[in-house]
Design a protein around this nucleic acid. Structure first.
Lengths: 214, 214
DNA sequence: AAATTAAATATCGTATACAATATCCAATGT
DNA sequence: ACATTGGATATTGTATACGATATTTAATTT
């Protein structure tokens, strides 16, 4: 029998709040009531305060002495800023991983399999594959600080426009292109493909922002 | 009479612990006892726990469920990783600020004054000037996410070899060189000077690591 | 009526209390 | 001697308590 993983309340709360903020469930600049959230989630204020510290360090809320927390404005500018940084950081990771001759054959084979057998892949499968490709590259870049930054930036705005499957199908093609360039040691071009890949993600999200307004 | 700024305990504790970690006062991988630290600092465990959340998000400690926190290994690799990222991020900030035609004349004048009147500048003055130059550029880059990252990265390893004044004198020259390039709109070269500037900082710190071992 | 003050209320920051988990150590059995 | 187990001890995670700050509301003064 395998042990069940107990997740600390603070982590659940952090994830819940982060998700809500990124989903735009709070008005920009809205005050986050510690008491309110604690009672809403059925916990005491202590773990919520801890979650606030994390979210503040991640840049999603601001803490003001004796005046509670306020949510940052998750608007188009935020999304753009966020993804421009992801482009810089993920690009750097690809560049470094390539120059360190990271062996991408396993990832490439997985992508090829996904491309050739789309009927066997669920949304979750694609998401898992996508995440594995990115995290593998982060690690291969061999810079602890870069890895941490990318891990944090992974928690960012994401698409929810109903076309996730289509996006994933395109993603697989982009990943194949990028991994092939990595395999041949072409660091600069691999980075460019990564840049375009993330830019496309960003545009999808910006598009859903536009749509929401109409 | 002007109001005294009250600093929350959690922030004092965060700063204290971060400083201690970066100064190498904890063995690598050493456990941070919540109870111990709380009693050492004369506070309860609550604000210490909050500090832990922040430090974990900043990447200086790891938190393990029910097993406390352990300090990350602040060795040469960490320093190198850290500064390579600062180079990437600060370089990007300079590049962006330049292309946005940020007006550097005020900063340049201050640097010139410092260069011409070194006798009027204390260590604190230099530190303040240094920080102002960097933060100004961060803001001028006009990317909120980048700004937050740089703010965090400012809390990193620092020199303490007794030659701080000499370092600052060199820094002023480097800043003048960089700001001049920014003024003339030469983003790429300005970035290179920033890169060299931070690399020199890094090497000083790495040097003091070497010295400590001998 | 407008401005100011004072009391009541709510919320925050920190300390303490309590329950759950992990660690240590001695006693037991092989 | 070595491994195992059961309980004592310590430390963590979460809840609650308490004092301080901020906010709101009502009363008072001009």
């Amino acid at each position: 029998m395998q042990p069940i993983k107990i997740v600390p309340a603070r982590e659940r709360i952090t994830a819940t709040l982060r998700k809500a903020i990124l989903a735009g469930e709070y008005q920009s600049g809205q005050e986050l009531s510690l008491t309110q959230i604690a009672s809403d989630l059925g916990v005491s204020r202590t773990p919520v305060r801890e979650a606030f510290q994390t979210l503040a360090a991640e840049g999603f809320i601001d803490l003001r002495m004796n005046k509670g927390a306020i949510v940052k404005n998750i608007d188009e500018k935020f999304v753009t800023d966020h993804f421009e940084m992801r482009i810089l950081l993920e690009g750097e990771a690809v560049y470094r991983a390539t120059n360190r001759h990271y062996d991408v054959s396993k990832l490439l084979a997985d992508c090829q399999y996904a491309a050739d057998n789309p009927q066997k892949f669920s949304l979750q499968d694609y998401t898992a594959l996508n995440q594995q490709i990115h995290t593998s590259i982060w690690k291969a870049a061999d810079n602890q600080r870069l890895y941490e930054l990318l891990k944090n930036f992974w928690n960012g705005p994401s698409v929810s426009d109903g076309n996730e499957l289509t996006h994933h199908l395109i993603s697989v093609q982009e990943h194949i292109k990028m991994l092939t360039l990595m395999k041949s040691g072409n660091a600069k071009e691999a980075r460019e493909v990564m840049t375009d890949h993330i830019k496309r993600s960003m545009n999808n999200i910006l598009q859903s922002f536009q749509d929401r307004k109409l």
